[in-house]
Computed example of a mutant assay.
Amino acid sequence: MDTDSNYTETLEKTVRDLLERQEDLIRTAFTDQLTGLGNRGGFAHSLEEIWEQELPVTMAFIDIDNLKHCNDIFGHDEGNRYILQVSLYLKLYMKVDEAAFRLGGDEFAILSTIATEDDLAERLEHCRTILLKNNDSEMPHSFSYGVSHADPALGEAPNRMTLDADHRMYDYKLRHAMHLDRRNITQVHADDFEISDRVFDAFSMLNEGRYFFIENLDKHRILWSQGALRDLGLPSEHIDNYRDYWKTRVHPDDLEACIDDIDQVYNGTKHRRVMQYRVRNAAGGYVLCRVRGFRIDGDGNVPSLYVGELVN
Rank of each mutant, 00 (worst) to 15 (best):
N184L: 11
Q264F: 07
N207V: 15
F203A: 03
N281A: 06
R210Q: 06
A228M: 05
I214S: 04
V279K: 04
C289L: 12
W224L: 13
V265C: 11
M205N: 06
H167T: 09
D166N: 01
A190V: 14
H189E: 15
R230G: 00
R175A: 09
D263R: 09
I214C: 11
H176F: 07
E194K: 12
C289Y: 05
L229A: 12
N241H: 08
F200V: 10
V250E: 03
A257D: 15
E256I: 14
K173L: 04
T269W: 08
A177D: 00
L255Q: 06
R295P: 04
H251I: 05
R295G: 09
V199S: 08
R292Y: 14
Y242G: 11
H176E: 02
E256D: 12
Y170E: 02
V274A: 04
Y172V: 02
E208H: 13
I296G: 06
V287H: 10
M161I: 04
R280C: 05
A202E: 12
F212Y: 15
T248H: 03
E237Y: 12
D254W: 02
D166R: 05
H189G: 15
E237L: 12
R280P: 00
D191T: 04
T162N: 00
D197C: 05
R290H: 00
D191F: 03
L232F: 06
R290K: 08
C289W: 01
D253Q: 09
V188A: 11
S204V: 01
D166M: 03
A228F: 05
K173G: 13
R175F: 09
R272W: 12
R292C: 15
L206G: 01
M178D: 14
G209S: 03
Y245F: 05
G209N: 00
A202T: 00
G285H: 12
H251M: 07
V274M: 06
S236P: 02
F203P: 14
R210S: 10
D218H: 02
G284L: 01
D244V: 14
R249E: 01
W246E: 11
F200S: 15
H176I: 10
H189P: 13
A165D: 05
M178Q: 13
R183I: 07
D181S: 02
D260P: 02
D263H: 12
G268C: 06
G233Q: 14
L232Y: 07
C289V: 10
D254R: 02
A228Y: 03
G284I: 06
H238W: 07
G227Q: 14
